[in-house]
Simulated assay, not measured.
Amino acid sequence: MANADGLEYYIKFPSPNFNYNQNNGDSDFVFVVNEEKLPVILLFGWAGCKDKYLAKYSQIYEERGLITLRYTAPVKCLFLRRYQMPSIGDKLLKLLLDLNFDNHPIIVHCFSNGGAFLYQNFSLAVDKHVKPLQIKGIIFDSAPGRRRISSLFRAMSAILEGNIIYNLSVSFVMTMFLSVIWLYEMVNSAFSTKKVFQTDPFEFLKDEVNRCPQLFIYSKNDHLIPHTDIEYFAEYRRKHGVDVKTICYERSLHVKHLPENRESYVNSVCSFINKCLNGNN
């Protein structure tokens, strides 16, 4: 783990003697890469994600000799202090520049709306930078989804720990409080003459400037973000000229698609990244 500008992130580089011409993972996939400018995979975790879980996803890429950087935004920033998220996006960009990754191909792999909201602010920082990064593709796992009070309550309940009475009561209070904030933001956005900071990744990312390929991995059994939300979003992006691929599972739960569909999941993300790196259509 490293700490820069208040960001607690995890980064891993391949070993110097890594053999890119052989299969090093749990599939038959082998990347063909420029070893002087290795691809960098940014993994943005879901709200409340513990790094030990995010590390299971980065392992997919590390086993194949890619650089990985994992970061999950603090829960307080995702829900209560969302005004701090643009600063986090700026710090992530600065971190990549300090690491001299500005000429490396970059793939973003984000999870749930928490990861999508982090990507939104990272994307804003990249757009403002004089020399844009080489973002080649985006993977959305269980995201993005529309704002719903029921989904917010389930998310808060999943994040909070403690006995069921404490969990449900605090989740209810937090849900009601955040719902009022949502309502205020919607009214302010509708009637304000000034440009309002967008805190809803579903709405912001629909019209994101970046037109690189996007992969959506989701399920019909997701109780936090309905598959219809993701399908609507993916189709919207496709109609606006984005190369979109979707993988829909029948039974896996929210951000549980890897453990429940490992072979298919690994092959899908690896094929997508290879396509992004080589510009295949």
Rank of each mutant, 00 (worst) to 15 (best):
L97G: 00
K50W: 01
K91A: 07
R70P: 05
A47I: 11
R70S: 06
S27P: 01
E62Q: 15
K52I: 02
M85C: 00
V30K: 13
V33G: 01
I41K: 02
M85P: 00
G65V: 08
S27D: 12
V40C: 11
L78D: 05
S87H: 11
G45D: 07
T72H: 03
L38T: 12
P39S: 12
G89R: 00
L78R: 12
M85R: 04
L95M: 11
L95N: 08
L43T: 11
V40S: 02
Y53G: 04
K37M: 06
F29M: 11
D98Y: 08
K94L: 10
C49A: 12
A47Y: 01
D90P: 01
M85H: 04
L43W: 14
L69M: 09
V75G: 01
A73C: 13
S27T: 14
G45H: 07
Y83R: 07
E35L: 14
N100C: 11
K76S: 07
M85T: 01
W46M: 05
C77A: 13
V30Q: 10
L66N: 12
S58Y: 10
R82N: 09
N34W: 07
A73N: 05
E35V: 13
Y53T: 01
K94H: 06
Y83N: 15
L54A: 02
G65D: 07
K91R: 13
D98L: 13
E63T: 12
E63R: 14
N100R: 15
I67T: 14
W46G: 03
R64N: 15
S27K: 11
Q59L: 10
K50R: 12
E63H: 10
C49F: 09
A47R: 02
T72I: 09
D98H: 15
T68I: 04
D28H: 11
K91G: 03
K94W: 01
Y83A: 14
P74F: 01
I41H: 06
A47C: 10
Y83D: 06
R70T: 13
W46K: 09
Q59I: 03
K37V: 00
V75N: 07
V40H: 11
E35F: 00
L80H: 12
W46H: 06
V75F: 07
K91H: 06
Y71R: 00
D90Q: 02
K37C: 11
T68R: 03
K76D: 02
L93V: 10
F29Y: 10
D90E: 04
C49N: 13
L43R: 07
F44I: 09
G48D: 14
S87D: 14
E62G: 13
Y53H: 06
Y57G: 03
I60Q: 02
R64T: 05
L97V: 09
R81E: 05
L80A: 15
P86T: 10
L80Y: 04
